[in-house]
Simulated assay, not measured.
Amino acid sequence: MRVLLIEDDRMIGESVEEGLRAEHYAVDRVRDGVSASMALSNDVYDVVLLDLGLPKKAGLEVLKDYRKQGGATPVLILTARDTTAERILGLDIGADDYLIKPFNLDELFARIRAILRRNAGRPQPTIYCRGVRLNPASHTTTLNGEPLQLSSREFALLQALMDPPGQVVSKSRLEEKLYGWMEEVESNTVEVYIHHLRKKLGVDFIKNVRGVGYIVLDQP
């Protein structure tokens, strides 16, 4: 999962970014509203964390413009502004959730997971398909009830294909979900992880759609 963190405060930004990476998210961070709007135009993120008190362009303006242009990525506002009127305004403009600073990182991660569940139309906390169950909260996987060891990138790639299953995901989209701006991506990275996952899950669990990408089907 790839996150855009929009936060100008150095200490908060570094703390949240470090915590997100420890939770196995790919993270891009920008520090002002203009850069935020430019980053959002790429449309590669699974969730956006948005501070409101940004230089160059206010956070609410960033959100308003993004929604006006048809941007649909879930947005979680992180701010010290705690009045009811401001919360209502942010939600009405298009935010999906609102978290007041200072906040606990564990609560932030739980809210991100809840947003991702809602966005995928998945009410349950785990992701299940054909005997494989992923738990994003504990970052654990089971196959037919037995623990399955996956690396963080294998887990992220499998989650991208299973949440929800039945959709074709291109190689470039998978790379976007696995890596942030500053991380080098080798040309065969996705193929290597797909190969590793097939060895653990069976060769038919992840299918190629020639010239398009990869898919995990609901049924064999």
Rank of each mutant, 00 (worst) to 15 (best):
R2F: 04
L161E: 00
K68V: 11
Q167K: 09
K57M: 14
V132S: 10
Q167N: 07
D204Y: 06
Y128I: 09
A22W: 09
L99A: 02
E18N: 12
V168G: 05
T84G: 02
V132L: 12
V27D: 03
K200F: 09
L178G: 05
L54D: 03
R173Q: 14
L161Y: 00
D43L: 07
F103W: 02
L116G: 03
H139C: 11
A36N: 00
D92Y: 12
A36G: 00
D82W: 03
L158C: 09
M162C: 07
I215L: 02
F103Y: 05
V192C: 01
P55F: 05
V203D: 15
F103P: 04
D32H: 13
V62P: 01
D32T: 11
E86T: 09
P147Q: 03
A160K: 06
R29H: 08
I93Y: 07
R2G: 07
M38C: 11
E183R: 08
K200Y: 08
I206S: 07
V216L: 06
H139P: 07
R67W: 01
I112L: 09
H196A: 13
A58I: 09
S152L: 03
L148I: 07
V185M: 05
Y128N: 12
L217I: 10
A58N: 10
R117C: 12
K207Q: 15
A156F: 00
R122K: 11
M162P: 04
M182I: 13
R198T: 01
D92G: 13
H24T: 04
Y193L: 12
V75Y: 03
D82L: 05
A58K: 13
V27L: 06
Q149A: 10
D106T: 12
A39H: 00
T142F: 03
K64F: 05
R133T: 10
N188I: 11
K68G: 08
G166V: 09
P164R: 02
K171N: 12
G121Y: 12
A58Y: 13
N144L: 07
D32R: 08
D96F: 00
D82C: 06
D218I: 07
L150K: 02
L78Y: 02
V190I: 15
